[in-house]
């Protein structure tokens, strides 16, 4: 009898596991769909637009975050030497900087949640800054992080777009949301996570997540692999082709030219 009870309890626990994994812990039902679900990088790749659609419960402020994996960034600092000349005055290493970080929101970041709530979930540049570590003193790290944001925004890798999520209520307590991220051509290869956050009554939660991969294909994959795995052969090939091209052009253009000495 004891054995049967134990078996029944075990079976119930096992059966309940997949169901529990599908539901956000204590959260409302929400969904997220990406189009495309993968971004192949071939020689004609010039960035991509990632369309995000989803369903969220009514009454939530929404933020959608697209982020790449954390990386280490090595920077050269510029400063004034002798009070006159702008020079490279040192180096700095910042860790836990995402390869890409874009936040789209329905309303402004200030409106959707208090800073500490957003920071806890990693929404907004101030949340990123809180996670970044470096070999610099706190004040200098903060200054460098501000400069790094400018650099990344110029490259199209970082962005904060307020009022960039369209929300349409369609009854039954649910609303449809839609937004678009621009993945620039220089976004590194790898996996990117899109996270749908909901904020209400000073509380924020992760409502849904989805992944999109940016991966090389065809000639791009072949050349990347050759350059990294067979550097010497790649270098000799590059030099050989360059010399052949140079000489071939010399021969073609040289026909009919006269000796000057």
């Amino acid at each position: 009898m004891r054995g049967r009870v134990l078996l029944a309890v075990t079976a119930l626990v096992l059966l309940s596991l997949p169901v529990a994994a599908q539901e956000p812990p204590g959260g409302p039902a929400a969904s997220l769909e990406l189009e495309p679900t993968a971004i192949p990088v071939d020689v004609f790749h010039n960035g991509a637009r990632l369309r995000v659609q989803g369903e969220v419960p009514v009454g939530y402020e929404i933020a959608v975050v697209c982020r790449g994996v954390d990386d280490t960034v090595e920077l050269t600092k510029k400063g004034k030497l002798l009070g006159l000349l702008w020079m490279n005055v040192g180096e700095a290493t910042l860790e836990h900087v995402p390869a890409l970080y874009q936040v789209n929101t329905v309303h402004s970041l200030k409106e959707i949640a208090p800073p500490d709530v957003r920071r806890a979930l990693g929404v907004g540049y101030d949340a990123l800054e809180a996670r970044v570590t470096s070999d610099q003193e706190a004040g200098e790290q903060s200054r460098l992080f501000g400069e790094l944001i400018k650099l990344k925004e110029r490259e199209g890798l970082f962005a904060t777009r307020e009022h960039a999520v369209q929300r349409t209520d369609h009854g039954a307590g649910q609303a449809a949301i839609a937004t678009t991220f621009t993945i620039p051509a220089r976004a590194p290869f790898g996996s990117y996570e899109v996270v749908l956050f909901g904020f209400r009554d000073g509380v924020g939660r992760k409502l849904a997540t989805a992944q999109v991969g940016v991966h090389p294909v065809g000639l791009v994959a072949f050349m990347s692999s050759l350059a990294r795995n067979h550097g010497l052969a790649f270098g000799l090939l590059a030099v050989g082709v360059a010399i052949a091209m140079g000489l071939l052009t010399g021969v073609i253009f040289g026909r009919g030219s006269k000796k000057v000495h």
Binding site: V43, L219, F234, A238, G246, G250
Partner: peptide, 29 residues
């Protein structure tokens, strides 16, 4: 320099160099 950079730093972009050199060999002539 090219062979060293390709071997040690893997920073030679052959496709970039190829497009540049098509322009530059004509320009050099």
């Amino acid at each position: 320099v090219t062979v060293l950079q390709a071997t040690v730093n893997h920073t030679v972009d052959f496709l970039l160099a190829l497009i540049l050199l098509v322009g530059s060999v004509i320009g050099a002539q």
